[in-house]
């Protein structure tokens, strides 16, 4: 369902250019559980942003569920981001003026999910899923880093997307909550969600069925394909 062919991302910095991605060939099937590791600056986030349709590659072809992403219009891209993909950002990216519950319910607003009652109910369920049922009325600034991380995860889960992309989702969590989260991810994967997560923690990467390593914008190892 995800097919990448010679994907490049080049930042033109005037005199020199930064090749953040340098020819990525990648094919991911529905229901896979993939970890991506690599040194800082190796291009992990850049790749993830392109997979999540938040960014456009400089070159190459990216096909998602059979359609060439470069040819999609703004509206179709918005709908893909809203329905198909749940994105958990490295820096949370919560809206500071909305409560945890409102942040989580927001994707449902843009999806056109009916009444506010239904949206609240679904947001509440998502927050309970990540163990934040008791912090729903808090603003992000009133939550700890780990709690904000979990609000961001709940927001990605609330639409029940087929692909979940997570950029260092356990980075701000203690090992106990990290383990709980990993359990949650495993469960989601069993339910059929495709899971791609960036991490630098090897014991988390180990839980993934397929492990990809990136260095200088290239895939240097890809273990467990089809496992």
């Amino acid at each position: 369902m995800i097919e990448m062919d010679k994907i490049t991302k080049i930042y033109d910095m005037g005199e020199e250019e930064v090749r953040a991605l340098n020819g990525i060939n990648l094919s991911i099937q529905e229901g896979e559980f993939i970890s991506i590791t690599g040194a800082s600056g190796s291009g992990k986030s850049t790749l993830m942003n392109i997979i999540g349709c938040l960014d456009k590659p400089t070159g190459g072809s990216y096909r998602l569920d059979g359609s060439e992403v470069a040819e999609l219009g703004d509206r179709e891209l918005a709908d893909i981001r809203g329905r198909k993909i749940g994105f958990i950002f490295q820096g949370f990216n919560l809206l500071p003026t909305l409560t945890a519950l409102e942040n989580v319910a927001l994707p449902l607003v843009y999806q056109g999910v009916g009444g506010s009652g239904e949206r609240k109910q679904r947001a509440k369920e998502a927050l309970e899923q990540v163990g934040l049922g008791d912090r729903m009325r808090h603003l992000p600034s009133q939550l700890s880093g780990g709690q904000q991380q979990r609000v961001a995860i709940a927001r990605a889960l609330v639409t029940k997307p087929s692909i979940i992309l997570a950029d260092e989702p356990t980075g701000n969590l203690d090992s106990k909550t990290g383990a709980e989260l990993l359990e949650l991810f495993t469960k989601l994967n069993k339910q059929g969600h495709t899971l791609i997560l960036i991490t630098h923690e090897l014991n988390i990467a180990r839980h993934a069925k397929r492990r990809i390593r990136i260095m200088d914008g290239r895939i240097v190892s890809d273990k467990g394909v089809g496992a």
């Binding site: 999540g52 709908d79 981001r81 994105f87 990216n93 919560l94 843009y110």
Partner: peptide, 15 residues
């Protein structure tokens, strides 16, 4: 940035 977040979670231009 707020606009970016909203778009990232599925807001259309019209929204």
């Amino acid at each position: 940035r707020e606009i970016g977040i909203r778009k990232a979670i599925g807001a259309r231009r019209a929204h």
